[in-house]
């Protein structure tokens, strides 16, 4: 049974219809969160071309994420980063059997609608692209297509879930090849989950009310999450993952799976690296196998990477206050 904390049963995105003689429901939280659940323990890879998507599928990726540019190239290019070309997304959907996701700008309701009409399997409302609305994220309950959102803290994660996100990933710092921020974010979310669980177990409802006010979310979702002791949706690691060891470490911190952005296709050994990261993600609790995976890559082929402290653009801060 999937946790359904924070679910809105009256959402516009939930559709009841007749299919032949049968009554069916689409877009329910079970279907959306269930879809994300099917990706657990897997790797979602950022791709920009059909060829990359096929390499990802052959390597054992559970899904691909289509972008116009890889996050590190977004940094280099500057300017405004928007959703990918629809034609490329469609070509990729026609050439791989695994689910296809695509990114839209934070708050850009119509980029999301365009992606929905394109029939992508999941939409990532992503800080890698230039935000279209600094004050509001998309009200994702209006969509039958599920969404994934980035978060740096429990408060951000719960705000996104309350808006209808069916999956959460850490923000990390995209396009840096530096895993430090993703590690910070997952640890922070886990620490905060432990803290509210302890408050729940102590029976101090007044303190949970205080937490709900601090997080800027409803009391109900705080209480239900505190009771569960984990997020009610799957939580992946993302932002700066470049090697099998990076992926395995994040899995060991309790992530449900991994997103790899620039780390694979900006490396010079993409094929081997894609496979190696999948293996390390699956067998993270067996260091010997992680070593074998790490051996498949050559550190001299890794993307160079960036120091997070000297960055002019911190993508993780986008959409963070709303």
């Amino acid at each position: 049974m999937l946790p359904l904390a924070g679910e809105r049963k009256d959402a516009k995105g939930i559709v009841s219809e007749q299919s032949d003689a049968n009554e069916i429901i689409r877009g329910s939280s079970t279907l959306k969160r269930g879809f994300a659940h099917m990706l657990k323990n897997g790797v979602v890879m950022d791709v920009t071309t059909v060829e990359q998507a096929q390499i990802a599928e052959e390597a054992g990726a559970v899904s691909v994420m289509v972008l116009d540019k890889l996050p590190s190239d977004v940094r280099k290019a500057g300017g405004v980063a928007r959703t990918a070309s629809i034609r490329i997304i469609q070509d990729i959907m026609d050439s791989v059997t695994i689910p296809v996701m695509a990114k839209c700008r934070i708050g850009h309701v119509y980029e999301a609608k365009v992606l929905r009409e394109t029939d992508v399997d999941m939409i990532d409302e992503s800080e890698v692209l230039t935000p279209a609305d600094e004050h509001h994220h998309i009200w994702k309950w209006d969509f039958t297509t599920p969404f994934v959102n980035g978060a740096r803290s429990l408060a951000e994660a719960l705000r996104r879930i309350e808006e209808g996100a069916a999956m959460i990933r850490t923000k990390g710092e995209p396009g840096t090849g530096n895993v430090a921020e993703a590690i910070t974010h997952i640890k922070k979310v886990n620490d905060e989950l432990r803290a509210i669980k302890a408050i729940y177990d102590s029976g101090d409802h007044q303190d949970l009310v205080r937490m709900a006010r601090e997080f800027k979310v409803s009391y109900d979702i705080v209480e239900e999450t505190a009771k569960l002791g984990r997020l009610p949706v799957v939580n992946f690691a993302a932002g700066g993952i470049a090697t099998p060891a990076d992926a395995a470490y994040l899995m060991s911190l309790g992530c449900d799976g991994i997103f790899v952005g620039s780390g694979i296709f900006n490396a010079n050994d993409a094929k081997e690296r894609a496979r190696a990261i999948v293996l390390a993600t699956t067998f993270w609790d067996e260091p010997e196998k992680v070593k074998e995976a790490q051996k498949m890559i050559d550190e001299r082929q890794s993307m160079l990477g960036l120091d997070v402290n000297t960055l002019e653009l911190k993508m993780q801060e986008r959409g963070g206050t709303s």
Partner: peptide, 27 residues
């Protein structure tokens, strides 16, 4: 179909004595 067409529906498996079952169909 793809994820947008994923659905929930009632199905029956009479031959194994489960006349009503709530089916979650995801891709």
């Amino acid at each position: 179909g793809r994820q947008r067409e994923s659905f929930e529906a009632e199905i029956a498996m009479d031959s194994i004595n489960i006349p009503k079952f709530h089916g979650i169909f995801i891709r």
